[in-house]
Amino acid sequence: MMELFIPAILTIITAATPLLFAALGELVTEKSGVLNLGIEGMMVIGAITGFVTVHLTGSATLAILASLLAGAIMSSIFAVLVLKLHASQVPTGLALTIFGIGLSALIGQSMIGVAYQGLPVISIPVLSSIPVLGELLFKHDILVFMSIVMVGAVMWFLYRTRYGLILRAVGDSHEAAHAMGYPVIKIRFLATLFGGAMSGVGGAYLSLAYSPLWVEQMTAGRGWIALALVVFATWRPGRVLLGAYLFGGITILQLHAQALGIGVPSQVMSMLPYLATIIVLVIISSDRSRIKLNSPASLGKSFHPSR
């Protein structure tokens, strides 16, 4: 039983980590009132940047930093258009996705067929030698640990710090926040950059750890699933963690069902994460008052200070 159980849980963790990064980043962006639909584009750019960097320098650390930076740069294009030039957020986010997919394919042209051994696994001394639990909790690559740390960090920032309070205020009522003298545009810009950086790292996890190679459009809709996760979590970081692991679980169903000899075509199994996203959205969204209560009130609205 254990020899089946442990690998299954480990697959859930690796499948959940990219979603967790991207959804946490988008959560902070949305909390400030900005809806960035370009996660898919930022993730795929993060994936190729990380992969190219590790191929050129051999350093996984540099690769992660580069993907973080690439995601932030991508989101800064979005931020300038939306926050400075008052472009509508929905089409701008879509443009970011289309651009990101195209650019990553262009950069990745020479990376097809290149292999990488994957991020090194870090075993936390002593703790990792606990039977079963050690294997499950204390023997992962650096990004898995970081993703969990980030959940705590985002929770602490949003609900326990002054800046978190300001960020939420900007997202709920930009007029009021502006009247109180807070720099609405600057705060939103920073929140958008954070979202981009996290998406970039989430993408890098795919090309550095989940399946360490480069395939065009390898994000396969995960950016959009991350977007749905934020709604599923009703904008709460703890629930993003839960949601990401739930989706990780659905992904492993897909991987292990065939190994177990269930006679369902692979295409049907591949549909599962997308269908699950729809079902989850329907369940959460049908309670209109809950969505209205939890979503940032100024989400998606453009702000132009009238002195």
Binding site: I101, G102, L103, A105
Partner: peptide, 10 residues
């Protein structure tokens, strides 16, 4: 690479 098309469109 054909991907240039996507970059142009974006």
């Amino acid at each position: 690479p054909v991907a240039v098309t996507g970059v142009f469109q974006g």
